[in-house]
Design a protein around this nucleic acid. Structure first.
Length: 286
DNA sequence: AAGAGGCCCTGATAGC
DNA sequence: TGCTATCAGGGCCTCT
């Protein structure tokens, strides 16, 4: 599900709610995610305090006061829900107001004094993992390329990097080892804004193309975060609110509509690249 | 050895 | 209505 902007929205929600709070109880309903939940999971996080919440690419990182890190990835369908206790004075933690909380696939529930965080993932492509210390966390992220919002994601970087990449630009932008944080939606949108056809070979891109890719990937992600992310199907922040960026999609899911670019009369076409749906305008993306 | 494709899952929706 | 097929915000693994 979430790409960089959506995970950022989750991070922002959590910063307002769980920072400096203590984990009171951990409930594991289903260990089966992409990777089976570690048997020491509960022991590692129970009774700890949340020191910080950060995001790296599409990963959410919760920094605990035992120097360990709770790492989450949401795959295609993972969500995190904040469920408030409707009776604050109730200490047995059993009554919660349900914010459209899914019933099935609530893999893990993390209880704080006045609410709980619920990790839900029907398709189980996501995972939760404990990382023992900062060194191991850095090592875990070592393979990831720069994210578009970062300064090191710049013209010089992609000029050097793209020169020897022969695959199509869409696959390159989705490759987390080259650029991290982008997923299928935003890659489609970025390529449209940059006027680049998704099947274009990466090493054949012109200087203008590279400049546009930098500009639009930064711009589109920034705007998406500002709009609260994209809610297609069921993405929502931890409080159950939906994002608005899906209203600004130019090509994603817009098969057979007229190209929104000014003075362009092309039609949005759908093709598959590496089994991922790809939308573009045949006329203005070259 | 880079790059293409299969596969891991469940659920919603389309089409018959 | 109820079946079957197709398709989903991802990424790891294998094969060439």
């Amino acid at each position: 599900m979430p790409e960089l902007p959506e995970v950022d929205i989750i991070k922002q929600s959590l910063k307002k709610t769980i920072l400096h709070k203590k984990i009171r109880k951990v409930l594991i309903n289903n260990k089966n995610l992409r990777f089976k939940l570690d048997s020491t999971f509960e022991k590692n996080i129970n009774k700890t305090k949340v020191l910080n919440v950060t995001r790296k690419a599409k990963y959410l990182v919760i920094n605990l006061d035992n120097n360990k890190f709770l790492l989450m990835h949401f795959g295609m369908s993972g969500t995190l829900h904040l469920v408030r206790n409707i009776n604050n004075r109730n200490t047995n933690l059993s009554f919660y107001k349900d914010l459209k909380l899914p019933i099935k696939h609530n893999h893990v529930e993390i209880f704080f004094s006045k609410f709980k965080l619920v990790y839900n993932d029907p398709r189980r492509f996501g995972f939760i993992k404990i990382i023992d210390n900062l060194e191991k966390l850095k090592l875990y992220f070592k393979r990831l390329g720069p994210e578009p919002p970062e300064r090191r994601f710049n013209l010089n970087y992609i000029q050097v990097k793209f020169k020897h990449i022969k695959k199509n630009i869409k696959s390159t932008l989705l490759d987390q080892n080259i650029i991290s944080g982008l997923g299928n939606i935003y890659v489609n949108e970025i390529l449209f804004s940059a006027g680049i056809i998704p099947t274009k070979k990466t090493h054949n891109l012109k200087l203008k193309n590279l400049k546009d890719l930098i500009i639009f990937s930064k711009k589109i992600l920034k705007n998406a975060i500002k709009k609260g992310g994209s809610s297609i199907r069921d993405f929502q922040n931890t409080s159950g609110n939906k994002g608005k960026f899906q209203d600004e999609f130019k090509v994603y899911g817009k098969e057979n509509t007229i190209c929104p670019r000014k003075n362009c009369t092309g039609k949005i076409t759908k093709i598959f690249i590496s089994n991922r749906s790809t939308f573009y305008c045949k006329l203005c993306q070259k």
